[in-house]
Nucleic acid binder design. Structure first.
Length: 573
DNA sequence: GCCGTTTTCGGCCCGACTGTTTTCAGTCG
């Protein structure tokens, strides 16, 4: 049976949420569907098993109505309510929602008055000055919508963390030098280290907000400039938006927490404050007796009976409950990393040789590296023949003999063939200290086959690590359809390692799955998947995601010393 | 549509900014 999985169910619930918003329904109803989508996606275990145990309606955020729809989806693969909803809303209205400044109300009004059903309709109407005849719209809003369409066409509204953080650091460096700045911080999803972000949120306290705001405003291009008393928004040349909030020094800790988010985390925190007889907003925490002074985020959490929650964890994924119990993990840090295992050399598709990689890794403070070039069936990437494998192994042995202070481990990134076998025979695989198994072909296999394929490779006695477990490319390619929970379970059963590929476009294993892997006792390997010397530094992006995934140093094999790593690898079958 | 330490009905975070208005609605985060 083609059983619908959590991700598919979540996506439909999310779509329903957007459709309801476009229809102008009760906004809380729309929010309820979005929330339910999040809850389902983050669920531990198989959806059909949870249903089987009759536990669906006991999940917080799933009531009778949504629960019934999930049942219909899982048992029939379809949902009449959703299909009806889709036909009742012009397809173009969903697209129009992504244009800045346009929301459900305006879209409905434009549809009613001018029959606008798509972005193209809207653009034509603006160019013919038709919007001026609609109440509530004027010349200025027509211009803004046109710019918004242009911007939407030119830039995706989401970007990779790695691309945006550079620009954020540049902005911060410019602001830091201003004498009117007292405190300054990154906020928003960048501060939470999200893998994909929309804009750059900055927060400052200042002795002269007006001067600071003007300076910041001058850094953007002319259109899209917004300048109020506490908030200034600009559009950078690169098409990235940045908002600077300016508050007083006393307000800074509250504002920092507020603008760091996430929205879900903030909502839960406000709910908690309310239950404790307090209210909170970006300017303070208040009891009936008056404002509660806090000079740092730590004191703010403390006033709510919580230990400090690192920004990375603020996703309302159990961090508030953990902080209440004093059980916030000591998250992994870059300095915990003693070595990395997934590097390519010029023998396959990398650009550097053994010596250069080892030297660069040593300069970053690593004690060891592991070479894992592509295997023979990866011909597009210069995969190594058995002969080349033997030659490389000798080279590495030779290197290790002459460099007692640094260690290179012998590995391979072995392709998982469509039937789940690895593409060297056991004798060849036995030459390596470890094997990273990877899917690089036949991405579009149906889920049962793909899951079986990966499980078989994972169960292979020679497999040590599963590379980039979902195969996603952020903003580009969807994960291949495979049952990640079964893969995590299988890794737990056989004591296998899941890779957290640190390439900024992969960041795979996703942090949400890191949380689940950790719960099952599965360890992860943060790997730069380096093809060039500079790629070694991408480890920091992997650390970010590991931290978001609640990973501590002992959950990550890269915290092993060279000696411990040798022991770990050699004690395997 | 969901939920319950004031609750089974009536809230659901709440403040800033913009544009079109003459006191506010819509959007955003």
């Amino acid at each position: 049976m083609n059983r619908m999985n959590k991700r598919e169910v979540a996506r439909i619930l999310e779509q329903i949420g957007i459709l309801l918003a476009v229809k102008g329904e009760n906004p809380f109803k729309s929010v309820a569907y979005n929330r339910a989508a999040r809850v389902i996606e983050a669920l531990d275990g198989e959806l059909h098993e949870i249903i089987g145990r009759g536990e669906l309606s006991s999940i917080k955020g799933i009531g009778n109505a949504i629960g019934g729809k999930i049942l219909e989806l899982v048992s029939t693969g379809r949902l009449k309510y959703y299909e009806d909803l889709r036909t009742s809303v012009p397809a173009g209205h969903l697209e129009m929602m992504r244009i800045r400044g346009l929301g459900p109300k305006k879209i409905v009004e434009l549809h009613k008055r001018l029959g606008i059903e798509s972005v193209d309709d809207l653009e034509r109407a603006c160019r013919s000055n038709l919007l001026l005849s609609v109440p509530g719209f004027g010349k200025r809003s027509q211009e803004k919508i046109l710019s918004g369409i242009g911007h939407w066409r030119k830039h995706a509204d989401r970007r990779l963390y790695a691309d945006v953080i550079r620009q954020a650091d540049w902005l911060l460096s410019l602001l830091e030098g201003r004498k009117e700045v007292i405190s300054l911080s990154l906020a928003g999803s960048l501060r939470r280290r999200s893998e994909v972000v929309k804009d750059i949120d900055l927060l400052a306290s200042s002795v002269n907000p007006a001067a600071l705001s003007s300076f910041f405003s001058s850094l953007g291009v002319d259109e899209f400039r917004e300048q109020g008393e506490t908030k200034t928004g600009i559009l950078l040349d690169s098409g990235i938006r940045s908002d600077l909030r300016i508050v007083s020094q006393e307000q800074f800790p509250y504002a920092l927490h507020h603008f760091t988010g996430s929205r879900e985390h903030n909502t839960a925190m406000r709910g908690r404050a309310k239950r404790m007889g307090m209210t909170m907003n970006e300017y303070g925490l208040f009891s009936e007796a008056g404002p509660i002074p806090c000079s740092s985020e730590g004191e703010l959490f403390s006033a709510l009976g919580l230990s400090l929650i690192p920004p990375e964890l603020r996703e309302n994924m159990g961090e508030i409950e953990a902080a209440e119990r004093g059980e916030i993990p000591r998250l992994i840090e870059l300095k915990d990393i003693r070595g990395v295992l997934h590097l390519h050399t010029s023998s396959s598709d990398g650009s550097a040789g053994l010596e250069a990689l080892a030297r660069a890794a040593g300069e970053l403070g690593f004690e060891y590296i592991g070479i894992a070039d592509h295997s023979r069936s990866a011909q597009y990437a210069g995969g190594l023949s058995v002969e080349e494998v033997r030659r490389q192994c000798s080279e590495i042995d030779e290197y290790n003999r002459s460099h007692p202070d640094f260690r290179i481990f012998k590995g391979i990134e072995a392709d998982i063939l469509p039937d789940g076998s690895l593409d060297y025979d056991d004798e060849t695989l036995a030459l390596f200290d470890y094997v990273i198994a990877a899917v690089h072909s036949y991405f579009s296999m149906p889920e049962p086959e793909m899951t079986g394929r990966i499980l078989r490779a994972l169960a292979h006695p020679r497999t040590t690590i599963l590379a980039h477990p979902t195969g996603r490319l952020l903003l580009d390619r969807e994960p291949y359809s495979a049952d990640i929970d079964r893969i995590i379970d299988c890794a737990a059963e056989y004591g296998k390692i899941l890779e957290l590929n640190a390439n900024p476009q992969r960041l795979d294993l996703d942090w949400r799955y890191c949380i689940r892997a950790k719960k099952k006792g599965v360890r992860i390997a943060i790997s730069p998947d380096a093809h060039h010397l500079e790629d070694l530094k991408t480890v920091v992006f992997g650390i970010n995601i590991a931290r978001k995934g609640w990973i501590e140093s002992f959950d990550c094999i890269n915290s092993l010393s060279a000696r411990e790593m040798a022991h770990f690898l050699y004690s395997r079958p």
